[in-house]
């Protein structure tokens, strides 16, 4: 048998060409299998089993799509609970530009933004005192975080109740109903879905026009 590390004889050259031909065929055959048949099969199964999930967990109201329960959106009015600061796009919550601020911990811009947001939050929510919950003035990783912590929701209850002209207890009850615990009691963190909470308000206590 020729030494494989020796000079390139006609035999070895033929063997190398043969591998190259296999490589071309394998790329095409396996691409059809993994790049086309596999995703199509999963699409078929997913749509059969979890159609709403596969299609993006979209929420309809009055026949129109108002968003997805998984994708955060921008709330600025006092009668709605507000989500976290978002670095997605120029105004935040741009679903075509998901991502975080990527500010490092010693970046002046991080501290300026957090200080500004905190000042604004305290001005909007005079009833709130004490240290701010950690998620309230930090930008999320996706820029589309649909959740806030229960403490961040709690900090906004007085403002929302006043803006809607309803009792704080009623608001508190709706927040509690929309608070999810840890999944299976263990995984993740307690959280409140901002869009779902605000939609449940609009159903329970429609704004006086």
């Amino acid at each position: 048998m020729p030494d494989p590390s020796g000079p390139l004889g006609p035999l070895e050259f033929g063997a190398k060409m043969k591998q190259l031909i296999i490589a071309v065929k394998a790329t095409l055959v396996l691409a059809v299998l993994t790049g086309i048949l596999y995703p199509l099969a999963v699409t078929g199964l997913s749509k059969a089993l979890f159609r709403h999930r596969a299609d993006g967990s979209l929420i309809q109201a009055n026949g129109k799509t108002v968003g997805s329960e998984l994708i955060g959106q921008r709330f600025t009015r006092p009668e709605y609970f507000h989500g976290r600061p978002s670095a997605a796009g120029n105004d935040g919550y741009d679903a075509l530009a998901s991502g975080g601020s990527n500010y490092g911990p010693t970046n002046q811009k991080l501290v300026d933004r957090a200080a500004g947001d905190l000042k604004q939050f305290r001005a909007d929510n005079p009833a709130f005192t004490g240290a701010a919950p950690a998620d309230l003035v930090t930008a999320s990783a996706s820029g589309l975080d649909p959740h806030i912590s229960p403490a961040s929701a709690d900090a906004q209850i007085a403002r929302v109740a006043a803006a809607r002209g309803v009792g704080r207890d009623q608001v508190r009850r709706l927040v509690a109903e929309n608070t999810e615990g840890r999944q299976f009691g263990i995984l993740g963190e307690p959280r409140v879905n901002v869009l779902k909470l605000n939609l449940s308000f609009d159903r329970a206590a429609p704004l006086r026009k």
Partner: peptide
């Protein structure tokens, strides 16, 4: 600045910049 860094039952505390709730 006045941002909570300890975890409590209702918020995560810590460095939440660039993290999801």
């Amino acid at each position: 600045l006045g941002i909570e860094s300890a975890a409590t039952a209702t918020q995560p505390g810590g460095n939440m910049e660039g993290k999801e709730v």
